[in-house]
């Protein structure tokens, strides 16, 4: 991957708070146009990493660059929209005035953009109300409008659906997914693993400030899940007996009313043939895949030494 294509690159990035190592030698590469998930339990260093990228937290060691390091960090930030931890606004100002202020901070003033963004996040009706009167979900929506100010190339979102109702969460996921289409890059942290699975192309899993694994969501899930086929037959006991005799099958286990066969899915027709010869017929056959949630718990429990 060429450096020019990397929007975020960190190299042995480290942050210590006294004796506590919040981020420990983190090296990440996030290419342009990706929706990238940062996963990890509380205290794993996700927010601190985002804070360092945004210049809010000074790294103790290591380096990072935004947009390939071709522009100054402050210029990079003007091309970035970010909410770290939770959306923070002035409670005594209206939602619209809050956006206008942050627009001014970026050195711009565009009333049309404000109206368009409020409309986009569904706050057009409440834009003139004070921020303190907003519900948690509305605050999150205003946070999304804030990150979209100036049409940034990079979005950094920390738990963007926190506090939203299910409908709102689905909408925001859809919005994030659409934002990540094309050239825009999204770095997203979330505790909701299925959310990351639905939204992200790639993911990095952190534990105790260390990078446990980084890669495309599909690749990671497949790498640990291995190759498995899930079967439901007319006679599971006989099927297990028959399939076990095949030398390319490494394992066969009974799983509730099904059978889990450790074998390449491409050989499923051979399994079907062998079973029919033994008068066992297949009712259902699927390739078994581990969810990101299962993968996450698997990998973080390993990293925690559990």
């Amino acid at each position: 991957m060429t450096t020019n294509n990397l929007v975020i690159e960190t190299e042995l990035l480290t942050k210590r708070f006294g004796d506590i190592v919040a981020v420990d030698g983190l090296s990440l590469e996030i290419p342009r146009g990706h929706v990238f998930g940062l996963l990890g339990p509380n205290g794993s260093g996700k927010t601190t990493t985002m804070g360092m990228l945004l210049g809010l937290v000074r790294p103790s060691a290591g380096r990072f660059s935004l947009f390939g390091g071709r522009i100054t960090h402050r210029e990079s930030l003007t091309r970035t929209g970010a909410v770290v931890e939770f959306p923070s606004f002035y409670p005594h100002l209206s939602g619209r005035d809050n956006l206008a202020y942050f627009q001014e901070v970026s050195g711009k003033s565009d009333a049309v953009e404000l109206d368009m963004l409020l409309d986009k996040v569904g706050l057009a009706e409440r834009g003139k109300d004070r921020f303190r009167t907003y519900s948690l979900g509305m605050k999150q929506r205003l946070g999304l409008a804030y990150v979209l100010l100036g049409n940034p190339e990079l979005l950094i979102l920390d738990e963007p659906t926190n506090g939203m109702d299910p409908d709102g969460m689905a909408e925001v996921r859809e919005l994030i997914r659409s934002l990540g289409d094309g050239e825009r890059t999204v770095l997203l942290s979330s505790h909701l693993l299925h959310e990351v699975e639905q939204v992200c192309d790639s993911v990095a899993i952190l534990s105790h400030g260390r990078l446990v694994v980084q890669g495309r969501v599909d690749d990671l899930v497949h790498s640990l899940a291995g190759e498995k086929i899930l079967l439901r037959t007319t006679d599971n006991a006989k099927a297990i007996e028959v399939i076990s005799k095949l030398d390319w099958v490494t394992d066969v286990t009974s799983k509730e009313k099904s059978i889990l066969v450790s074998a390449p899915p491409k050989r499923s027709t051979e399994i079907s043939e062998v079973l029919s010869k033994s008068a066992v017929y297949i009712a259902e056959m699927t390739s078994s895949q581990m969810s990101l949630e299962e993968y996450y718990f698997n990998i973080t429990s390993g990293a925690n030494g559990d």
């Binding site: 804070g51 210049g55 402050r74 990079s76 002035y90 942050f102 970026s106 804030y146």
Partner: peptide, 14 residues
């Protein structure tokens, strides 16, 4: 207290 300083600086304000 409100965390707004973080958001101002994250927008590229020195």
């Amino acid at each position: 207290t409100w965390g707004t300083a973080r958001q101002v600086l994250a927008k590229g304000c020195s």
